[in-house]
């Protein structure tokens, strides 16, 4: 089955430009732009070391880091989801 899916992607007429964003990442980019082109006072995540993002999210969830909305949002994500989102942002420029 996996081979079949891989083959379908290989010959598929839609060639993804990059890996599809993991669950949640698309919504993070509502505030944290996925491109470094956008100028904003909100913390930049694009191109950031994933370990920084994972650490920050864990601290937000535990209330160990000052927050406005991120303490409330971090509680909605698992460690695995945060790791995937952090890796996705690391690849953005």
């Amino acid at each position: 089955m996996r081979a079949l899916v891989a083959a379908a992607v290989a010959v598929g007429w839609i060639v993804p430009s990059s890996a599809a964003p993991p669950a949640g990442a698309a919504a993070c980019s509502g505030c944290h732009a996925a491109s470094t082109r956008v100028a904003t006072p909100v913390a930049r995540l694009a191109g950031r070391d994933p370990a920084d993002i994972v650490k920050a999210m864990r601290e937000f969830r535990e209330g160990a880091r000052p927050a406005t909305v991120m303490d409330r949002i971090a509680k909605g994500f698992t460690d695995e989801e945060v790791q995937a989102i952090a890796a996705w942002y690391a690849g953005k420029r």
């Binding site: 980019s29 509502g30 505030c31 944290h32 732009a33 996925a34 491109s35 082109r37 956008v38 100028a39 904003t40 006072p41 909100v42 406005t68 909305v69």
Partner: peptide, 18 residues
């Protein structure tokens, strides 16, 4: 939070239209 509101608006409109 008022400053973040403005920041959000700039990010989202930049992402969508910029």
């Amino acid at each position: 939070e008022a400053a973040m509101a403005e920041g959000w608006f700039r990010t989202i409109t930049g992402e969508v239209f910029g």
